[in-house]
């Protein structure tokens, strides 16, 4: 059981790594959100796999459902912001978002 958990966590790490690569290198705002979504998938998988390995699958499921609901809210807000930005700049390129310098 324990080794299966570690194997699953290995796949979680791959998913999150892919998502981080996307966030770091892509320039399209929607693509960045897709990267975020992949990271979220990895984390949901981590939660359910943890529950499965520890015989807590019912609790893990309810956690996973909550995470999915949170995800929908975040993605909807982000897409609303992107559509609004698109009205201003007529582009999805995040390199054009340089008016503010953090």
């Amino acid at each position: 059981m324990n080794n299966l958990w570690i194997l699953n966590m290995g796949f979680v790490a791959l998913l999150i790594g892919t998502g981080i690569y996307c966030l770091l290198t892509m320039k399209n705002a929607v693509k960045l959100l897709i990267g975020l979504e992949i990271i979220a998938k990895g984390v949901t998988l981590a939660l359910v796999a943890s529950g499965y390995a520890r015989n807590n699958i019912l609790a893990a499921q309810s956690l996973a459902i909550t995470v999915i609901v949170v995800d929908v809210a975040v993605i909807a807000t982000a897409l609303a912001i992107i559509i609004n930005i698109n009205r201003h700049t007529k582009s999805l390129d995040v390199r054009k978002l340089t008016k503010l310098k953090g």
């Binding site: 929607v30 499965y52 699958i57 996973a64 993605i75 897409l79 992107i82 559509i83 999805l92």
Partner: peptide
Amino acid sequence: MNAVYAGVFEVSVVAGLITVLFITAIALT
């Protein structure tokens, strides 16, 4: 993994709703 409810949610909400949201946003922009 016997997580039936989470699976159903994943299909209906993530594969369904979020994809629709993405496609709407892509169409709009």
